[in-house]
Design a protein around this nucleic acid. Sequence first.
DNA 1: TGTGATTGGAAAATCGATGTACTGACCGCG
DNA 2: CGCGGTCAGTACATCGATTTTCCAATCACA
Lengths: 357, 357
Amino acid sequence: MTKGKTPPAPGHVNLRMLAEHLGLSQTTVSLVLNNSPSAKSIPQETRNRVVEAAQRLDYRPNYFARSLRQSRSMSVGVLAPDLSEGYFTRVMGGVVEELTAARYFYFTACHDWKPELIEKYPRMLVERAVDGFLLLNTSVDELTVPVPVVAISAHCSAEKVTNILLDHHQAVQRALSHLYHLGHRRIAFMRGPRAIPDSEFRWESIQQVAREMDLKLDPELAIRIDTAGWSTKGGQHPMAPEIGYKPMQALLEQTRAFTAVFCFNDISAIGAIRALKDAGLSVPGDVSVVGFDDILSAAYATPSLTTVRQPLAEMGRRGAKVLLERIADKKKTFPTDIFMESELIIRESTGPAKHRS
Amino acid sequence: MTKGKTPPAPGHVNLRMLAEHLGLSQTTVSLVLNNSPSAKSIPQETRNRVVEAAQRLDYRPNYFARSLRQSRSMSVGVLAPDLSEGYFTRVMGGVVEELTAARYFYFTACHDWKPELIEKYPRMLVERAVDGFLLLNTSVDELTVPVPVVAISAHCSAEKVTNILLDHHQAVQRALSHLYHLGHRRIAFMRGPRAIPDSEFRWESIQQVAREMDLKLDPELAIRIDTAGWSTKGGQHPMAPEIGYKPMQALLEQTRAFTAVFCFNDISAIGAIRALKDAGLSVPGDVSVVGFDDILSAAYATPSLTTVRQPLAEMGRRGAKVLLERIADKKKTFPTDIFMESELIIRESTGPAKHRS
DNA sequence: TGTGATTGGAAAATCGATGTACTGACCGCG
DNA sequence: CGCGGTCAGTACATCGATTTTCCAATCACA
């Protein structure tokens, strides 16, 4: 049916065939269909004929030929750690909205935190002539690509890069003062994996805010999610609740002298809650738990999760929008950093600090 | 830096430049670099020179030019309802593995269950010359695309389509006999949304297995997830636990005369558990809950979820593999349906049926 | 009756890689 | 000496759309 055997029938109508059919030159047809300014001398009647014929014969310009000529692909590359539950999904919701509106598609590449893939994928995508890059949650020291880049939740100091960042200071402040007002003074902190750029931003903000609030940070209560050696491929997913379960379990073996824990994200918070319960502690009775992100299941966890909501979709939208603008106008200057505000969602997992006996 | 202004410097080395640099013709260089059989008369020494120079000058064939010539894009289109937590993510894990190994990339298009998008996206992707389609969870009546298609968790009767399907009969049998052996006789069923192809397969299997097991299906206990009017864009996600919360809540207002519920998926099971708890019932004390899929958080829900594990990654891998084979050899015949086996994961959310007073 | 602008359109040169169909040169052999 | 056969490569025609340059009429105006 769609074999494309003989030259006269390449499975589809091309410009030459359309032009022949109309008794016009390819030039004219192309000019009309692209509404090119240099076609202003072409009378309306001819235009109509062309457009009508194109429609009737279902003419579709060949994507490769067009892209070859114009050297742009109408697609961008998205570089992300993984297709993680929670983060990727939400950000991409916003990204897709913006890209689709501009008739752009995107290639996704998951580097799984492997340095060699973080090297390789950008190159491969450049070969596919993407018009720009979107970096999710991924820091790249020196990304030498010939196209614009927007980094979401990461920081690239390179030129031609716009960073979309959460205002971590404000986010942490909201979370900690919530706990503070509930009477919590001994708070455990779960730091994110080293690979994730936000881990460091967050931790710095925590230290700073703690100073400002005159809250003591006990190093013993600072635990860290360690995903070293984990891999999506191996069946074990780096973003399973287990990432929070293990460190919390380890902490509980050391000490129970804390009344709250501020987790790196909701997934790990769910794991942490599980660990607390398994250790015979009640949430929020004995320990209050604060998550981060506000993933969809946060509201349906037991207990439902108090968490800092990142405007992930909005960050995606904004990032995609800036990227498209950068693509459209390569010389204009763009802001280096764009900060987004978070929101504290208070649910069941936090409560008044238990007066310790 | 990478401006690409003057003809002699289009930002990158192309075949002509490379050939000139070598004092050879483009033909020769191309033949050597592609290891073409018609280059067998070219001496090893010349080959070495070519390869070395290509490497040194960092020559990369232009993707569009090459694709235009060979009319294949080395990319496939993935059509999915959404980037849902749980399903999409897991399947794509397997898909990506297979595609990457074959140097393929993919475009993702989310149709959000909108019929017009299910129409439009395949066309748009065909225009982008994808070499094949992967349909996730999406039924398309008459997909008239000129390339091979593989449908995962859906059924397309069209020619040129291979379906990757879960063996629902076996899956349901495992789940129901587990409940049956625990003494459950009055079991509620949560049917999936109409839009999802699996909903119907599953329900038919349930009816059949129930007959085989001599288990009565009370129509009053068959509830349905209704996502009509929901949309990712509106901020409300069709795959939030809420989809399970609401129908369960509604059921509980009608009757409590059941000791177990078999949910359509884990997300809705988590919502259902929440509804049961909110109604003062304990899980699994009063009601046992069985989910479906085994998403990552299933093990960390409270209580952890007994569920039917779909081999989602494996289904993705298998689907991608078949698609690539179909692309490579368009004339060979391929199986129409491939069935995959599930596994019952028993956790805390199921227990012995309570002897009803 | 030129002169110059406008109208309506076409020829041909890209974009860059691929690969078929050739062309010389040289060698061996009868 | 002449014929076929390797060797080592090259010229050139694709793939299909875009776009610059050009051309021939026609019309307005002086």
